[in-house]
């Protein structure tokens, strides 16, 4: 398992532990999941197959743990002023771990195949399609052509969005496997939360009530009540660019970038509240 990480990189090492748990639990789910009959297979995981619900819940919370520990590690590096110690190219590629982690979680949400997932797929296609010039190609590349079902999404979820974070984590941390302490911590934390918080499929197509996207994207869903569709990719892209730019700016410029990122976070929370309070549909 290699040498232990330095204390200052504990969350970075933990993120690799969560990534390993996510991938291993995902591999265990593969024989139980059928993209062509997604909702029925997810319902079977939650009922007919003993213990499978726990594997799926561990998978979901380990993915969340990967995102959170990556964000905390990033925040620690920024607060300690260690950004300049990372080569700019590696910093930029490591920054990509944030949207890749979110994309991994979002594709997992789409693979549920319930009404919320189908709606999120349509919204995702619409948002990607609004990117000038390359939007249609981007939507087809990531989600497959219209009417293709969940096959392309499943392929990206299990392939692209597993290989990329592992490669980027390896480049950043110079280790392919987590240390034992990080792996055990990530596994125990995922199992503990999975035992407490239920992770069930959402409503089937045609069920009454409004449809909500994944909780971490409710801010974007809320923005789309009031702002143009392009907001849904401009805001996240600007946030990722802002984090990447931290490697190049100092002094007041860095303060301005940090203020911008804080503004995005506040707006995100505000529109999440607006969506939940105002209601839709």
């Amino acid at each position: 398992m290699g040498e232990r990480p330095a204390d200052g990189h504990r969350f970075g090492a933990l993120s690799l532990g969560f990534l390993a748990v996510t991938v291993l639990s995902g591999v265990a789910l593969v024989p139980m999941y059928r993209p062509e009959d997604a909702l029925a297979s997810v319902e079977a995981i939650h009922g007919a197959i003993p213990g499978a619900w726990l594997i799926r819940a561990v998978h979901a919370f380990a993915a969340l743990g990967f995102l959170l520990s990556t964000v905390i590690h990033l925040a620690q590096v920024v607060v300690r002023g260690d950004v300049g110690r990372v080569p700019a190219g590696i910093w930029w590629r490591s920054t990509l771990l944030l949207p890749i982690a979110v994309a991994g979680m979002l594709t997992g949400f789409l693979l549920r195949g319930d009404a919320e997932a189908i709606a999120a797929m349509a919204v995702g296609r619409g948002v990607l399609g609004s990117v000038p010039w390359i939007g249609e190609g981007l939507a087809t590349l990531l989600l497959g052509p219209p009417g293709a079902g969940l096959g392309p999404v499943a392929l990206h979820h299990a392939g692209t969005l597993t290989v990329l974070p592992w490669l980027l984590s390896f480049e950043h941390g110079r280790r392919a496997w987590p240390d034992l302490r990080s792996l055990v911590t990530a596994l125990l934390a995922s199992i503990a939360i999975a035992g407490i918080v239920p992770v069930a499929p959402g409503p089937a197509e045609g069920a009454a009530g409004r449809l909500l996207g994944p909780w971490y994207l409710l801010g974007l869903q809320g923005m789309l009540l009031d702002l143009p569709v392009v907001t849904a990719w401009i805001v996240p892209a600007a946030a990722v660019l802002g984090v990447g730019m931290l490697a190049h700016v100092r002094g007041r410029a860095r303060t301005a970038v940090m203020a911008g990122l804080g503004g995005v976070a506040v707006a995100w929370v505000g529109w999440t509240v607006r969506l939940l309070v105002a209601g839709a549909g």
Binding site: A119, G206, Q221, G281
Partner: peptide, 22 residues
């Protein structure tokens, strides 16, 4: 026509409502 969610018939009005963005 906003972002592609499937709207639902609204029996009360005879119209249609989108469950995603209202």
């Amino acid at each position: 026509t906003h972002l592609g969610c499937r709207t639902r018939p609204d029996p009360a009005s005879g119209g249609f409502a989108c469950p995603c963005h209202g």
